[in-house]
Design a protein around this nucleic acid. Structure first.
Lengths: 267, 267
DNA sequence: CCTGATTCTGCGGTTATTTGCAGGTTAATG
DNA sequence: CATTAACCTGCAAATAACCGCAGAATCAGG
């Protein structure tokens, strides 16, 4: 009672924003933070810390875990592609397989960057006479030789992290192409729509989706809920979503309202 | 009551997520981990370690074994190009190394397809602030990250055999670019000039050479003498030739007459 | 200056997750 | 073939998380 007889909602001398900022730095320096430690360190209740952590996790800056949080990079968010490829590999492969079943011989496909779409490219062995356009430099080597008639690579500036090209050349080319299907791997899906971490990649995806008659989105269950910085399009631009687990309720409703066909990859 | 009379579920100071992350790194560094070692190292029960291993195995990051785990097998695919790389690796690597020594910081490079130019890209580690333009889809992943400022990929139709792009988009782009140096790997060199097997690739090389102030040709000794179907340019368009063995007499004379600087890669 | 709305905070009760342990089963080893 | 270690399943305990609620401070506008 001497100090705080009642809740004391207001800042204890430290503003919430600043507390969160320091909290994030602590997490990065120590590779982890625990709720209990932070609560005693900042002199606030564990619930407050939990809420802070949730906010930061929602921005993709932290990965929430039981008892605390770890920096986003530690688990797998924006790690180099090589690591992302192996992460959630079984799920991605099931999704890729199910998506490949949606492709008919002779179609023209647009494929964007990402590890899931790369897995998709590998699963195209059963198809024939495909025409493929991609900005993912891994796709050409991954796609089975016998499945394609022609394969075109979009030029532009190379991005080391994601191993895709992005740039004026690609933007100029995409609108002049009309494809049957765009196969898009995204970073995050919410009821509001698709999003990713990079504005310029979002722009590229938007161009691809716009030039395709049908858009198939590939996303494993870990993509649901979080929303990333750069919005791509709303769900009504999507015809099919292939995933491995049923989405959360709010996303599921939004998908139904947008008349998105939901394909669950069989295990 | 000494320390822990009963289970103690809560984090022992290390969050599960972080423990798994460190565990994964240990597995990768040591190529294997055992349940018992990890249990004592992290101060948790073997059962907990087993559960961690199962989680990581479920994400495809580890391969579970009796008594421990090993890192997930890395992908290895054998394309024709990859095989060619090992075929003449010592010679190609020496040539690549010698050619890389000719590049100065801040230069703008044009790099075409071929296994020798790919080796060249790998040897650029000592350079900085390079701007690179290429139609070789292997180059972007091969070039050391720290050596380049910008890297552009030429778009176009993909050729499976050589893993390069060729096409209207690339042709349209190349003339609008002016580079310091074109680094060209060729199929054959005679006294008459450079040649290769495919007309369309010859055309691309010609465009590249034309837009560069300096042309460096990479060719191992096996390329001398034979002439291929598609002529590229005569020797007088070449500034430097990097090879591993002195050329035959007639080629040597032609090189001298065309004032081509001959660089022999040291063994 | 005062009042209503918003935000931040802590609290109590319920649910979920993590962890270690006991015991039966399976796999590796001599 | 026997023996030891590792594995898996169910289980209990302790903590963490979640949900709704109410008090307190800040803010907006008259």
């Amino acid at each position: 009672m001497s100090e705080r007889p009642f809740p004391t909602p207001g800042p204890n001398g430290v503003l919430p924003a600043r507390r969160r900022s320091e909290l994030l730095e602590l997490a990065r320096n120590h590779s982890q933070v625990t709720v209990a430690d932070l609560a005693s360190k900042f002199g606030v209740s564990p619930d407050t810390i939990r809420r802070d952590l949730d906010v930061l996790a929602g921005q993709g800056l932290l990965e929430r875990t039981h008892g605390g949080a770890v920096p986003a990079g530690l688990v797998n968010q924006d790690s180099p592609l090589d690591q992302r490829i192996v992460a959630h590999k079984p799920a991605k492969q099931r999704i890729a397989r199910a998506a490949a079943d949606l492709i008919r011989d002779g179609e023209t496909l647009m494929i964007n960057g990402g590890s899931t779409t790369l897995a998709f490219a590998r699963e195209l062995a059963g198809c024939h006479d495909l025409t493929i356009v991609t900005n993912n430099l891994q796709v050409p080597a991954a796609v089975p030789r016998g499945a394609v008639r022609d394969l075109y690579v979009l030029g532009g500036q190379y991005r080391f992290e994601s191993q895709v090209t992005i740039g004026a050349v690609g933007f100029a080319t995409v609108p002049s192409i009309s494809t049957d299907t765009a196969v898009i791997g995204v970073g995050a899906i919410t009821a509001d729509g698709l999003s990713t971490t990079l504005l310029i990649e979002a722009e590229m995806m938007r161009a691809m989706i716009g030039s395709a008659r049908r858009t198939i989105v590939l996303a494993d269950a870990s993509k649901f809920g979080h929303s990333s910085f750069a919005e791509i399009v709303s769900l009504k631009h999507v015809e099919v979503l292939v995933t491995d687990e049923p989405p959360p309720e709010d996303v599921g409703e939004a998908l139904a309202e947008a008349q998105v066909e939901l394909v669950l990859a069989p295990s």
